[in-house]
């Protein structure tokens, strides 16, 4: 009898759920725990890790140089998120109101550019805005400016890169929540005397809020940890948390500090997810 349950239940469940569980424990749970552990160690003279409990790394985070970068990153991620939502919502709304056939083509049209290597797309902004690039040439030829403007390696260009890279991740969840919104609810509102505007603020916006929140998470968190955009468009002059973490595990070799910064990102992520789950289920988040 017992052998039978083993064969009928335990064995198949082990065979099927086993590999994925093992992978997650080995390569997600363990590394996560280990990086938290390392963040409480300290750095040796030669960049090695001294295995003794210390809050040194966390104290360093409050140091004005690092603290400034953290604030700047959060600000940049915040601005990116707000702009992506503001730009993306009307766009998502426009697509969602199209007939299904057309809408799926329009969504496809958003995805196509994203099958081009993301670094090459960032590089394009650089080519466009570089000192002797097309934009400067155009401005010079029309006489708007006398000397080329320096767009390259500025916060502004980094922001352009951030927004264009993140926009689809903002549009897709908002699109699917607007698309899911039942037409009869909007009609009911109009039927009861609400104009288009009133309906939007009373019905559409509150009911698509979960989609907006998904967008916020899908834009804000990656923006906070990004370093490719700053590397490509900021030329090492613009630094975000992501760049600092990368450097701690590369040239600078301060693992505990890098780990502490990572833990900071984990905490912020966890916090946002916690707030999100109070409004909606995490399983419903439109990740794709």
């Amino acid at each position: 009898m017992q052998k039978n349950t083993f064969k009928r239940k335990t064995l198949p469940s082990l065979a099927m759920a086993g590999p994925v569980s093992l992978w997650m424990i080995l390569f997600v749970t363990l590394p996560m725990l280990y990086i938290i552990y390392i963040s409480f160690m300290s750095r040796g003279v030669f960049g090695d890790v001294v295995y003794k409990f210390s809050l040194e790394s966390y104290e360093t985070l409050l140091d004005s140089t690092y603290f400034k970068v953290i604030l700047k990153s959060i600000k940049a991620a915040f601005v990116t998120t707000v702009l992506c939502i503001l730009i993306g919502y009307p766009f998502a709304y426009y697509i969602a109101k199209k007939p299904k056939e057309v809408a799926s083509k329009l969504i496809m049209l958003i995805m196509i550019p994203f099958w081009t290597n993301s670094l090459m797309r960032l590089n394009s902004w650089l080519l466009l805005f570089q000192t002797s690039g097309p934009v400067n040439n155009f401005l010079l030829s029309t006489g708007f400016i006398d000397t080329p403007m320096s767009f390259v390696y500025t916060d502004g260009l980094v922001m352009v890169g951030m927004i264009t890279n993140m926009l689809p991740f903002a549009v897709l969840p908002m699109y699917s929540s607007i698309e899911k919104l039942s037409r009869s609810l909007l009609e009911a509102s109009a039927d009861l005397g609400a104009s288009g505007r009133t309906t939007f603020f009373n019905i559409t916006l509150p009911l698509t809020f979960p989609g907006i929140f998904s967008s916020i998470i899908l834009v804000f968190i990656p923006s906070l940890g990004i370093y490719t955009v700053t590397d490509m468009l900021g030329g090492g002059k613009v630094l975000y948390i992501g760049n600092i973490i990368k450097n701690q595990f590369g040239s600078i070799r301060n693992w505990p500090l890098g780990a502490a910064l990572s833990v900071l990102l984990i905490v912020i992520t966890g916090l946002l997810i916690y707030i999100y789950t109070r409004f909606a289920k995490i399983e419903d988040m439109e990740v794709l």
Binding site: M24, F27, I221, G225, W255, S262
Partner: peptide
Amino acid sequence: INNMLYIPIIVPEIVMAVALLII
């Protein structure tokens, strides 16, 4: 395990990368 599955999707990739690196 279900919760673990969301970590690589949501946590910034750089964090996952350095965590794997040190392991």
